[in-house]
Design a protein around this nucleic acid. Structure first.
Length: 239
DNA sequence: GCAACAATAT
DNA sequence: GATATTGTTG
């Protein structure tokens, strides 16, 4: 009786079988810290990215001048991968609060406008609406945010990568378990497809925000994870 | 009651 | 298509 879909933590194991098929994972140069993104592809296997490169998930990545030239809202940290300018000034060094929320005031179904992509949400859950209780702002998974997400998943492992743990590890203000759960669901589907040889598309890029062809992939090999700490540590995260 | 998961809705 | 919400289960 009942559906076979058990929402059980145990099933988590069968969900992400590291059955080989590890496409060349690129870092997309979002870390920005390292200059040339040419030889950074193998960083996962090699020495893994420096923690300094991952922790500050909020690097502007785009110079203010460039942003102004293209009318890019760097507040959201967009276009990270496409930005060869890694010498941009670090706006904030806060460990958290870098959510990009899309404010939709529309009550109707007309939601197509992007009010702004800023850390508004971080300023105080509710952000855009100021005080109007209603629909929550739609979260936007920027490449940086997704990167952090991937790092968290990789850090926790297939089995430990549950929404609650990921939220804690990411340590992003305003980020809810629901947000992560939803994103994780999509991410798992993405992983499943990449690992399935029967997949119609050999290399389905994980569609992060801005349509950037990011191909962030967590190290399927546990060995790749060992020794690498993009996060302070699980215990340290305890508050 | 909480958390995770899958499915569905927006 | 991306994210939120809902329903079911442990």
């Amino acid at each position: 009786m009942l559906s076979p879909r058990g929402g059980r933590p145990h099933d988590a194991t069968a969900r992400a079988p590291s059955s080989s098929s590890s496409p060349p994972r690129q870092h997309a140069g979002m870390g920005a810290g390292a200059g040339g993104a040419s030889g950074r592809v193998l960083e996962w296997e090699a020495g893994l990215p420096a923690a300094s490169e991952l922790t500050p998930v909020s690097h502007p990545l785009i110079t203010p001048a460039l942003a102004a030239a293209f009318r890019i809202n760097i507040a959201g940290g967009a276009f990270a991968a496409a930005s060869p300018f890694d010498d941009s000034p670090l706006a904030h060094d806060s460990p958290t609060s870098h959510l990009s929320l899309s404010c939709d005031e529309e009550d109707d179904d007309d939601e197509d406008e992007e009010g702004e992509t800023e850390d508004a949400a971080a300023s105080g859950s509710g952000a855009c609406r100021g005080g109007r209780a209603g629909k929550k702002a739609r979260m936007v998974w920027t490449p940086e945010l997704h990167h952090r997400f991937v790092e968290a998943v990789a850090h926790l492992g297939d089995k430990g990568a549950v929404p609650k743990a990921i939220v804690r590890l990411m340590n992003v203000e305003g980020l809810t378990r629901e947000n992560v759960a939803s994103h994780l669901q999509k991410y798992r589907i993405y992983l499943k497809r990449t690992r399935n040889p029967a997949a119609p598309q050999p290399a389905p890029h994980f569609p992060t925000a801005y349509g950037s062809p990011f191909n962030l992939q967590p190290p399927s090999d546990p060995s790749s994870r060992s020794g690498y700490c993009a996060f302070p540590s699980r215990d340290s995260e305890k508050l």
